[in-house]
Simulated assay, not measured.
Amino acid sequence: MLSHRVIPTLLLSKGGLVKTTKFKQPKYVGDPVNAIRIFNEKEVDELVVLDIDASREGREPDYDAIAEFASECFMPLAYGGGIRTVKQARTLFSLGLEKVVLQTAILDNTELISDIAQRFGSQSVIASVDIKRDWRGRAKIWSAAKRKKLDPPWLDKLQEFVDAGAGEILLNSVDRDGTQQGYDNELIATAAKALSVPVIALGGAGKLEHLASVVESGASAVAAGSLFVFQGPHRAVLISYPRYSVLESLFRS
């Protein structure tokens, strides 16, 4: 087993997979079931699927689609998007999911974390936070559903999620999303030092060295989208995943 999990993160929009840049300009990259089958063959550690439209549109998860994803997926699967109640989480777990990813709902209702964690265990709850820096470089929580920065200090909010029972924090940099220029290592280091649960870094991976760098900054796991769906300077769509031996050497060096 690798010392650090390497997690492809797939963005779902209108039934297809897309990849964004700084949360804008979604580019279609393929069918989710086909992608899952490829990642099965690559023996991926874990997979995250995020419906980027559900919360903004005020709708529930697409249970039929998620059931299909879960039936095809040979690795642990986490899903986020439109989850607002324990009942919805229960339905998702019954379909075969290992974890739920909570974001929009918990910005206003931290109790949702506690309610789900008490019933299904903290290990089943990932609290996801998007961070966008302002013109002075200060990190701010970004609400993708409301499309605006929020006032609460970001690190205090993360600690609140941990105190409520979140088993992991998925920390995503809006400014790095899709750029393939590297993670916001400073952001990850600050969170990892302050929090008692694993921090998953997301946003900015463009080469394997970026994974090693953010792990050195304190990330317990690394997640990426563009790195695993684009190839070459023209960003041709080609789903890939490094061999186990390559990743093993990467985290050993």
Rank of each mutant, 00 (worst) to 15 (best):
T20Q: 15
K22G: 00
V29A: 06
D31K: 12
P32V: 15
V33I: 15
I38R: 14
F39E: 04
N40H: 06
E43L: 11
L47G: 12
V48W: 03
V48D: 07
V48Q: 04
V49S: 06
L50S: 07
D51I: 05
I52V: 15
D53M: 08
S55G: 12
E57T: 04
E60H: 08
E60W: 00
P61Y: 10
D62V: 07
Y63I: 07
D64R: 13
A65L: 15
I66H: 05
A67R: 14
E68Y: 00
M75Q: 13
G80E: 13
G81Y: 12
G82D: 06
G82Q: 07
I83P: 04
K87Q: 14
K87G: 12
Q88D: 13
A89K: 10
A89D: 05
T91K: 15
L97V: 10
L97N: 08
E98H: 09
E98F: 00
K99I: 08
K99Q: 13
V101H: 04
T104S: 15
L107K: 04
E111M: 08
I113E: 04
I113H: 04
S114C: 02
S114P: 01
I116N: 04
I116F: 09
I116G: 03
R119E: 15
G121L: 11
G121T: 07
V125G: 01
I126A: 06
I126M: 06
A127K: 04
S128Q: 10
K132Q: 15
R133E: 04
R133N: 08
W135L: 12
R136Y: 12
R136P: 02
G137V: 10
